[in-house]
């Protein structure tokens, strides 16, 4: 990365982070809802602990991984909605009149998504510890969870950015939210794959990339160092990030018509 591009990415990231953390109304739900759902589902589905083959002694520990996925989905909305607002208000035109490169715009916008993702992860882990969760993989596992969270924030943030650049309006970006939540519920968030009793659901969950992300985080929390699960999670997160960035770059070319 050239020095000019690095400076541009840095200042756009700085702005994105400032903007993100100056909108408490956007941050608080991204923190509160996943934690609230964690406690509600852990209370309501506690009986699953008695299922033969259930991988954890505590459903709370099992469900903790889901909060990180919900956080990633909020990152999609945050990064995309902010950029859509820039398009609607003309701020993107202002930036386009500077020597800013398209790559700097996308990477810089992701700065806000990453910072929000890291902040969310810290809150979810704190809530987990308060609720009595333990991380089977230890401190090193927590570091790996953060790395995966960052990669997920990049991937899902890039999807939000691509949607914003393609549509140019915040409502369209928000429209991704329910779609991603449907994907979330069609994964292994409530039960491990081999305990899902309905065949078609199990097939859908097997093909659903979110399953591998949830399972990777979950393995670090409840199993320890499960190499294949962690590797699969990182590969899926990486693939989503690459596709998201390619999609953003393509959408950017359509949006920025400057000569």
């Amino acid at each position: 990365m050239s020095a000019v591009l690095a400076t541009q990415v840095l200042v756009i990231s700085e702005r994105s982070v400032r903007r993100t953390f100056r909108q408490p109304a956007a941050i608080i739900p991204a923190i509160i809802f996943p934690i609230m759902l964690l406690f509600v589902s852990a209370g309501g589905l506690q009986a699953a602990e008695d299922l033969p083959g259930f991988p954890s002694v505590s459903y709370f520990d099992f469900a903790l991984a889901v909060t990180f996925m919900q956080g990633a989905i909020f990152a999609t909305g945050g990064a995309g909605t902010d950029l859509a607002t820039d398009i609607e208000t003309g701020f993107l035109s202002r930036l386009s009149l500077t020597p800013m490169s398209g790559a700097a715009l996308v990477l810089g916008q992701l700065g806000g998504a990453i910072s929000l993702g890291v902040f969310q992860a810290t809150c979810y882990l704190a809530a987990g510890f308060i609720g009595g969760a333990t991380i089977a993989s230890g401190v090193a596992g927590v570091v790996v969870i953060y790395l995966l969270v960052i990669l997920m924030a990049v991937g899902f943030g890039a999807i939000g950015i691509a949607a914003a650049l393609r549509s140019g309006n915040g409502e369209a970006v928000q429209g991704l939210f329910p779609l991603l939540f449907v994907l979330l519920f069609l994964s292994t968030i409530n039960l491990p794959l081999d305990l899902i009793p309905i065949t078609w659901f199990r097939w859908v969950a097997t093909g659903n990339p979110i399953t591998y992300l949830v399972d990777a985080v979950r393995s670090l929390i409840i199993t320890g160092w499960d190499g294949p699960a962690i590797l699969a999670g990182f590969l899926v997160a990486f693939a989503i990030a690459v596709l998201g960035i390619i999609g953003s770059a393509a959408a950017l070319r359509g949006r920025l018509q400057r000569t």
């Binding site: 541009q8 200042v11 700085e14 702005r15 400032r18 820039d86 208000t89 500077t98």
Partner: peptide
């Protein structure tokens, strides 16, 4: 250029706008 409807970020200060735009101009 000052295009129609001053396109500013309401969450940034005036000085932060100056820093952002100036930095992008090198």
């Amino acid at each position: 250029a000052a295009l129609q409807e001053a396109a500013l970020d309401r969450f940034l200060t005036g000085r932060e706008h100056i820093k952002l735009q100036g930095s992008l101009h090198g």
